[in-house]
């Protein structure tokens, strides 16, 4: 444990700490938040931080601290489901392409490269233009938008693994291709995929808050850091804390994901060390 801590360094520890705080808030939110995040209290409207509302209240008098805590829950839920979706799609396609090679590989990679020809957020915007804006639509859109990166990483690990002796051995022993792939090839892709998933976690939190800021993500009144920023924009002069606080939360979450991602990369993938 000590050796691991030394290898990931102080910035990795900070990243781990930020991520832990975020997850604790997300999981324990209902018990930690002092108020209901959607409860209105018009007397407290645009109130500055005070004893009753520690971080102030928004334009409907809703408690900011409670909304920020529930916002963590929204961000973590969206990020976890989106990353899981992108992983499932990406690993399935990448494994198939890298292991079967031939025409299957070529078709998957041409489609994949075309998906990569769209900037990620644009692809998500395009999908949401068709299916309409909702949290579910956003998760599906972002999951599809981020899957091509997973396909690439999985395929390239599989390509280097499939020539190795233990994969050959499994084939010689008469195991079916599918068994070889799932039991022997896939577990060896876990390292690079973990690094990618951590980085992707940050990208998704950023994309979610950007889409919610544009009014195309988590719909109000549900609290998300992005839609809180959008709602607070008209009050930027009277109540600047409404703008400052959600942004600090997004930045802390992103910093956590970035630092943890760097540390995991150094730990798990010596080839990518900087």
């Amino acid at each position: 444990m000590k050796a691991v801590l030394r290898r990931i360094g102080p910035s990795g520890v900070l990243g781990g700490f930020l991520a832990t705080v975020l997850i604790v808030f997300a999981v324990l939110g209902p018990w930690l938040a002092p108020y209901d995040p959607v409860a209105l209290d018009l007397r407290a409207r645009l109130g500055a931080p005070s004893a009753a509302h520690l971080l102030g209240a928004d334009e409907f008098g809703r408690d900011i601290l409670s909304r920020l805590i529930f916002g963590a829950r929204v961000s973590i839920t969206v990020a976890t489901t989106t990353v899981a979706l992108a992983m499932v799609i990406g690993v399935a396609l990448g494994l198939t392409a890298g292991y079967l090679r031939g025409w299957t590989d070529r078709v998957i990679m041409i489609l994949n490269d075309s998906a990569l020809a769209f900037p990620g957020l644009l692809l998500a915007l395009g999908i949401m233009a068709v299916v309409g804006a909702s949290t579910t639509a956003m998760v599906i859109a972002l999951g599809i938008a981020f899957a091509p990166a997973v396909v690439r990483v999985t395929r390239s690990s599989v390509l280097s693994l499939r020539e190795r002796e233990f994969v050959e051995a499994s084939r010689v022993m008469g195991n079916a291709e599918r068994t070889t792939m799932i039991r022997h090839v896939l577990p060896n892709c876990v390292g690079p995929l973990t690094v990618l998933a951590t980085a992707m976690f940050g990208w998704v939190i950023l994309a979610e808050s950007a889409l919610s800021f544009l009014g195309l993500g988590v719909p109000p009144p549900a609290p998300s850091w992005g839609n809180m920023l959008a709602a607070a924009r008209p009050y930027i002069q009277e109540a600047p804390w409404l703008i400052i606080l959600p942004g600090l939360c997004i930045s802390a979450a992103l910093l956590g994901a970035n630092l943890l991602g760097d540390a995991l990369r150094d730990l798990l993938d010596p080839r990518m060390q900087s």
């Binding site: 930045s251 992103l254 970035n258």
Partner: peptide, 22 residues
């Protein structure tokens, strides 16, 4: 650099708007 990478563009924009604009 890592700090800048972790600040969302729209929030940094709002901060710049708050300071230099307003």
């Amino acid at each position: 650099a890592t700090l800048l990478l972790s600040i969302p563009s729209f929030w940094l924009g709002l901060m710049i708007l708050l300071v230099f604009g307003l």
